[in-house]
Amino acid sequence: MTTGWHEAADAVRLEAVRKEYGKGVVALDGVSIAFPRGGFTAVMGPSGSGKSTFLHCAAGLDRPTSGRVVLDGQDLDGKNETYLTKLRRDRVGFVFQAFNLLPALTVEQNVVLPLQLAGKRPDKRLVARILTHVGLDGRRKHLPGQLSGGQQQRVAIARALITSPAVLFADEPTGALDTRTAAEVLGLLRDSVRSSGQTVIMVTHDPVAASFADDVVFLADGRIAGRLARPTAEAVAERLTHLGAWGRVAA
């Protein structure tokens, strides 16, 4: 068993995590992996490989059937829903394929919403700095409906960063964007890792998106099926092809 010091060095650690749904449906089958602070990791795998379940368990949105998840040094095992809700609110950021912005609120109001929900007063300088970081300083009074899809996703990223989370989880963040806009959004996530030491874990099916990450973790049949450092889109696509074939043979 790892010591507390090593766990503190990791943003997220999963130890022998298993997740079953109903009778005999195993989504995760003994997954053990650690994500260091200040890294950008993509999680990939064939359809049904357990990617979404992996993200939900790692982020404390779902409880493993067995095993252990340590998030920002906090062991989630046995914690009640109130504790987990507060931990997610304070220490976790989320970006989804759907932007999930409130249409009646301005860009700035959407961004500071997590702080207000937590009963905290927004720091105007921090808000300005994050809006500048995501390239929306001149749009702070706009409503989401006045923005492009890429700009709306930038608002979602700013909202996820405003609480200075220990880890930002992104689930297919570029799925609704065109290729050029997707590259801009992924570059922004990568810059957040480089400039402020943010930890990003991104689930994606897109080899090009994965190539923006520092490394890629592959899942197949609910198990870790390898890692790839300094990925290129071509290397990721090739590995995915083999994973798909391996999954069909195993099935």
Rank of each mutant, 00 (worst) to 15 (best):
T3Q: 15
T3A: 15
G4W: 11
H6W: 14
H6T: 13
E7H: 08
E7N: 08
V12A: 01
A16D: 13
A16I: 09
R18M: 08
K19R: 15
K19E: 05
V26G: 01
S32P: 07
S32V: 06
S32A: 06
I33M: 14
A34C: 07
R37L: 02
R37I: 01
G38T: 01
G39A: 11
A42E: 06
A42T: 03
V43F: 12
S47R: 04
G48R: 14
G48P: 15
F54E: 02
F54Q: 03
H56W: 11
R63N: 07
R63G: 06
T65D: 03
S66W: 14
G67N: 10
V69H: 00
Q74G: 05
L76Y: 02
D77C: 10
G78E: 00
Y83Q: 06
L84M: 07
L87Q: 05
L87Y: 03
L87G: 00
V92W: 07
V92R: 08
G93V: 09
G93I: 07
F96S: 03
F96Y: 13
N100V: 10
L101T: 06
L101G: 04
L102Y: 11
A104H: 12
T106L: 10
Q109E: 13
L113N: 01
P114N: 00
L117F: 12
A118V: 13
A118K: 10
G119M: 14
R125D: 11
V127I: 04
G135D: 08
D137S: 11
R139H: 14
R140T: 13
H142M: 06
G145N: 14
G145C: 04
G150S: 02
Q151C: 11
Q151H: 10
Q153S: 05
R154W: 04
V155K: 00
I157V: 15
A158I: 15
A158Q: 14
R159G: 08
L161D: 02
L161M: 13
S164Y: 11
L168F: 04
L168I: 08
F169S: 04
A170G: 01
P173Y: 00
A176I: 15
T179G: 09
T181N: 07
V185L: 11
L189R: 06
S192L: 15
R194D: 04
S196W: 15
S196V: 12
V200H: 07
I201D: 00
V208D: 02
F212K: 07
A213T: 05
D214C: 02
L219E: 00
L219Y: 01
L219W: 02
A220F: 02
G222D: 02
R223C: 00
I224G: 06
L228D: 00
R230Q: 14
R230C: 08
P231D: 09
E234A: 15
E238Q: 13
T241Q: 11
L243P: 01
A245Y: 05
A245E: 11
A245W: 04
A251N: 03
